[in-house]
């Protein structure tokens, strides 16, 4: 279980996370929605300590990640798979090398075992046969899927997806959604999906939370999401130009 308490984060004088409180339960598929630039990526990065809060703390299985030393932090991170918004593939390496890197660095597996495992994960993300391409030769959707294969290579307990379907065509997006559901069921992982793709939300989410103005302003099921009378949430899920949120840059 992940418990986020009173999380606060500012950059220079811009407050991004004001006071975030959120519990993430084992095995659930939690979707975090919110406008672009509202701090969804920042929140995800806090969960694996890629960013440190100004205030508040995060417990991962009752361990305060802010307090752990580097050794334990790396141990903790092995339980996480992180799909970056930009995929963040290592562009000096081939697809196989990207996916295999955690195995090469953290396990004593032989080359044969590693190759088998990489092939298995590539199969899972529906990308066999691209092993020896470089990231620059892949399309956006392929990059995301390679990034996903890399994120799950160590069989993590938690998978964090940062906008897994943004910028993909609808069919590819549906495939990724399916994959998220499959992974969650097959491997019994806890999934945290950041997105503003409402179709994806409807398919994937066990529970939805909405981040707005640095706080969680909604938490509930899909049905509750569409039924809510919170005007901000309502405007977001119905993609309405009229409403409390106006398309000026988000101010805090």
């Amino acid at each position: 279980m992940i418990a986020i308490r009173n999380l606060k984060k500012s950059f220079e004088n811009k407050t991004v996370l004001r006071d975030v409180n959120l519990d993430i339960y084992d095995g659930e598929k939690l979707v975090i929605i919110g406008r672009s630039g509202c701090g969804k990526s920042v929140l995800l990065k806090h969960i694996v300590n890629l960013m440190q809060p100004d205030n508040g703390y995060i417990l991962v299985d009752n361990i305060a990640i802010k307090r752990v030393g580097q050794k334990d932090l790396f141990h903790l991170r092995k339980q996480f798979g992180f799909l970056f918004q930009s995929a963040a593939l290592f562009d000096s390496m081939t697809v196989v090398e990207n996916i295999a890197l955690p195995l090469v660095e953290h396990t004593d597996m032989t080359l044969k075992e590693i190759n088998e495992k990489v092939a298995e994960k590539l199969e899972l993300v529906g990308l066999p046969g691209v092993e020896y391409l470089k990231p620059a030769e892949l399309s956006g959707g392929m990059k995301k899927r390679v990034g996903l294969a890399r994120a799950i290579i160590m069989d993590p307990k938690y998978i964090l997806y940062d906008e897994p379907t943004t910028g993909l065509d609808p069919i590819m997006a549906a495939n990724i959604d399916k994959l998220i559901i499959e992974l969650s069921e097959k491997l019994n992982v806890t999934s945290i999906v950041v997105t503003h793709d409402m179709q994806s939300v409807a398919k994937v989410a066990d529970r939805v939370v909405m981040l707005h103005n640095g706080k969680i302003i909604f938490s509930g099921s899909i049905d509750e999401l569409y039924a809510t009378d919170n005007k901000v949430v309502n405007q977001f899920v119905t993609a309405n130009a009229e409403g409390p949120i106006q398309p000026k840059p988000v101010t805090y």
Partner: peptide, 16 residues
């Protein structure tokens, strides 16, 4: 690597 989040990716894979 820093501006394209590859450094973050290394860290997230528990590689210093």
């Amino acid at each position: 690597m820093k501006v394209t989040e590859q450094i973050d990716a290394l860290e997230s894979l528990a590689i210093d």
